[in-house]
């Protein structure tokens, strides 16, 4: 088990390095002269030359690359071109917002999607068809559009929720719930649908298998067959799908944050993209990759926990 985790970690280091180097080169080669962004158009040529020197932009590309990678590994992502604040500080401030919304969304997806999937698989008939059709719909609705409709409906018209902004949980728990509810609903709907669909498919599959018949023939109550045996057998699939959905949410949250003006990673990313604030973008690339690695590890561990074949392999 520990070996699987370690191997996963070791595998992700070279991949992460390659992506890091790739984005660095992309930005340095294609991104133009950052001094214009940093100093604004009114700066003189001397000022800019001076800044180039202090930023080390006159060094060979390879030296710059080594320096950058070294800094990243010591947790220094440089300063924002625009706000001049350290990238790490900016991201650390935004991360809790994004994680609140995405973690809540994936939790809701599990809590709602799995029972719905089981229901569809066990009931069949009309229930199954209604649930399946809804999943098709919810997987197709653009998250930001759903967010917009929810905002217009529940925040603007009904005034049940604030239209925008964020309050930290530590500061005001109730306010936090109010601010994240609509974003979470908008964000999780596709993930709920995906988990529901996959759970349903897996349960239909499992209920066709011989061991279910053995259990039924031995008089094991349906409740135990569904929630103990079938659920545990479906567990591997469910956590894998859940992990993939969470990774997807990390992308989708960008759009939803934009709608509700949540000061998370996504909003910062969009702002950085329009302002050519490359250190921020690079920092976000690293943060997201780390989150993906962590997610995959959690999935791996959870899979081993439910499936003895994985654990004992």
């Amino acid at each position: 088990m520990l070996r699987i985790v370690l191997r996963r970690l070791l595998q992700s280091i070279p991949i992460g390095l390659i992506v890091l180097v790739g984005t660095f080169i992309l930005i340095r080669v294609g991104g133009g002269d950052p001094t214009a962004t940093i100093l604004g158009i009114s700066a003189t040529a001397e000022q800019r030359a001076e800044l180039r020197e202090t930023l080390g932009l006159n060094d060979p590309l390879f030296t710059q690359l080594l320096r950058y990678v070294g800094e990243v590994f010591t947790g220094d992502f440089g300063d924002s071109y625009v706000s001049k604040r350290p990238v790490v500080a900016v991201l650390l401030q935004a991360l809790p917002v994004t994680l609140s919304v995405t973690l809540l969304a994936v939790t809701v997806a599990f809590i709602v999607g799995i029972p719905l999937g089981i229901l569809a698989a066990r009931r069949g008939g009309v229930t199954d068809r209604v649930i399946q059709s809804s999943t098709v719909l919810f997987m197709a609705i653009p998250g930001f559009w759903l967010a917009l409709m929810l905002m217009v409906g529940f925040a603007v018209r009904l005034r049940w929720f604030p239209t925008s902004g964020y309050v930290a949980f530590e500061r005001d728990a109730l306010g936090w719930i109010q601010h994240v509810t609509l974003p979470v609903v908008a964000l999780c709907s596709a993930a709920v649908a995906a988990l529901c669909l996959q759970t349903r498919a897996r349960f239909v599959d499992i209920f066709d298998q011989d061991f279910i018949r053995t259990l039924r023939a031995a008089g094991v109550p349906t409740r135990s067959i569904v929630f103990r045996h079938a659920l545990k057998n479906a567990g591997g699939t469910i956590v894998t799908v859940g992990g993939l959905q969470f990774i997807g949410l990390l992308g989708g949250v960008m759009f939803v944050e934009q709608v509700f003006a949540l000061p998370g990673i996504g909003r910062i990313a969009v702002q950085a993209a329009t302002q050519h604030d490359f250190p921020i973008l690079q920092g976000i690339v690293v943060v997201l990759m780390v989150l993906v690695v962590i997610t995959n590890l959690v999935v791996e561990i959870a899979r081993a926990a439910v499936n003895p074949k994985v654990r004992l392999a």
Binding site: I27, L281, M289, V292
Partner: peptide, 16 residues
């Protein structure tokens, strides 16, 4: 697969 897609797209738009 490891690349965070949306951010890369944002970066590309920002550059090009």
């Amino acid at each position: 697969l490891a690349v965070p897609g949306i951010i890369i797209l944002l970066t590309v738009v920002s550059i090009f």
